[in-house]
């Protein structure tokens, strides 16, 4: 089960500048673990205390995983995982 993961600029230091990398896994959790095995440190940028960090949005195919089970979201074979920086402010 292989997915293509799109990496935002801020995290490309972990992927040697690559915009897209492959990762294995059938859930988002597994994909992130595999990503971290090949690109150490990336998991800490995405996950805190067992949940997705509020600074990132993660999409499996076209859906925001916050509406699709979070880290338990299913990742289909040949699926795409897109990581984008959350955009917010105020206060």
């Amino acid at each position: 089960m292989s997915a293509t993961v799109s990496i935002p600029t801020i995290l490309r230091t972990h992927t040697g500048g690559e915009k897209q990398v492959k990762a294995e896994g059938s859930t988002l959790q597994e994909v992130i673990s595999d990503l971290d095995a090949n690109h150490p440190g990336i998991k800490d940028r995405l996950v805190t205390d067992g949940a997705l960090h509020r600074f990132v949005n993660v999409y499996v195919n076209d859906e925001d995983v916050r509406f699709a089970g979070g880290l338990d979201a299913q990742v289909p074979d040949n699926g795409t995982v897109t990581i984008l920086p959350a955009v917010a402010g105020g206060r």
């Binding site: 076209d62 984008l84 402010g89 105020g90």
Partner: peptide, 16 residues
């Protein structure tokens, strides 16, 4: 309304 946050689904559509 003194904070802002992009709607995440809309953000993805624009990104794509």
């Amino acid at each position: 309304g003194s904070d802002y946050r992009f709607d995440s689904r809309e953000q993805f559509a624009v990104y794509k």
